[in-house]
Amino acid sequence: MTTGIQLDGVSRKFGQIRAVDDLTIDVPQGSVAVLLGPNGAGKTTTVRLITGSLRPDAGSIRVFGLDPIADGQAVRQRCGVVPPKPALYDRLTGRNNLEYAAMIWDAPPEAIDEAAARFAIDDALHLKVAGYSTGMRTRLALARAVLHDPDILLLDEPTAGLDPESARAVLDLIRELAGSGRTVIMATHLLHEAEGIADQVILMGAGSARAAGHPLELAARYMKDPVVIIDAENRDSLKTLESRDGVLGTSWNGALHMTIESIEILPELVAGLVNDGVRLTRIEPMAATLEHLYFEMQRQLTEAAPPPEVAQQLPRNPKGSRTPPGPQ
């Protein structure tokens, strides 16, 4: 894949606060990257840096080979952005909002109805945006973002404030847009949103990328030991599992969650339980969700993180940024 968006050692401070600190990410053209992190992790600042709305204090940014500061007009012409608050003109109708955006981005007039229909907002275009629900506003903002058929979509918390049904609809639409070959960067702090969409998850914390990779790759890196959910008619009988060979640990969360060395030892463990007369009601290898992955990554990275004075002395990688500690 061709490199679409590259940030290399990018930093940006606001006063004393480092919103983005030595951030290095690489989003190939036509892929979907999810910036995942808690509030204040630097996701919104990253989106703003990519469009050139913010100037980095250090580092370099390339968007399809262009510098967003020097070639800002060309970069922004290729971007469709949905900010955390949809940024719509409330006193105007939905159609007015799309018409003016079409004029600014030189989109053809027929694109207005196409985009509105695509996001199922066409029936409400004649209404003032002030009367729209949160879901309608988000759909209108999405329609506005794709009016000019952008190469890059930057979606900053696109489902914030939406009910689950609307959020699912929006995510389906994003999936559809991603499927049509656009480069998508979505910032979110909701883990489940990244699932099934992301080609790459970039875990952000304190303004930098703590880890990045395909969800499966990250799962393999951070969740090496399989977890099996197991339950029985007599739960006390499962207590013996902790002392068996190959079992690394257990915890209760509705059922017994058992971490084992390898999935290959599971038949033997089950056979042992059956021989002991345990009547099993559930055996289920747990699929690693992003949620598990996220918290496991956070745990491992926090445990492995050196104190700040040590971090300053970390060796720099060939690109000049410091290699984050943690399992590779």
Binding site: S53, R76, P83, P86, A87, Y89, D90
Partner: peptide, 14 residues
């Protein structure tokens, strides 16, 4: 204050 500044900032307008 209305949040429209973000829309203009990300636009290709100079």
């Amino acid at each position: 204050e209305r949040g429209i500044g973000e829309f203009l900032a990300h636009s290709p307008l100079t």
